[in-house]
C-alpha cells in the first residue's frame, strides 16, 4: 500500500515538474515548486514508513517547517520589484 501511495506521489511530482517546465507564467512555476515541496514531504514520510525507519521523519519535519520560507522570499522579491518599478515610473 505504501508503495502504491508513493507511486501516486511520484507521478504527481512528474506532473508538477511538467507544469514547472511548461509555465506559462512565472507564478505557475512557483506554484509547481510549492506543490513539489509538499509532495516531497509526503514522499519522505511514506518512504520512512516503507523502510520501517520512522526515526528518519526528522527530514520531513524540517521541510514542513521551512519550505514556506522560499515561497515568502518569492513574494518579497516580486513586491520589491513592483515597488522599484513604481519608483522608476514616478521619477
Amino acid at each position: 500500500m505504501y508503495i502504491l501511495v508513493s507511486i501516486a506521489i511520484l507521478v504527481t511530482m512528474v506532473l508538477a515538474l511538467v507544469r514547472a517546465l511548461l509555465g506559462p507564467t512565472v507564478y505557475d512555476r512557483v506554484l509547481a515548486v510549492n506543490v513539489f515541496g509538499t509532495k516531497t514531504v509526503l514522499l519522505l514520510s511514506v518512504i520512512a514508513f516503507l523502510y520501517g525507519r520512522p526515526d528518519f521523519l526528522d527530514l520531513a519535519l524540517a521541510y514542513a517547517l521551512i519550505n514556506v520560507v522560499g515561497i515568502l522570499a518569492v513574494l518579497e522579491f516580486f513586491q520589491d520589484r513592483s515597488r522599484k518599478q513604481q519608483g522608476a515610473d514616478n521619477d
Binding site: 512557483v30 519535519l61 519550505n67 514556506v68 515568502l72 518569492v74 513574494l75 513586491q79
Partner: peptide
C-alpha cells in the same frame, strides 16, 4: 507535528503566491 505544520504553512504559502500574482 508534520501534518500540523503542513496544514499551517500550506495555505500561507498559497496565499503568499496568489497575493504576489
Amino acid at each position: 507535528a508534520i501534518m500540523l505544520f503542513l496544514l499551517l504553512t500550506g495555505p500561507t504559502a498559497t496565499y503568499a503566491l496568489a497575493n504576489a500574482a
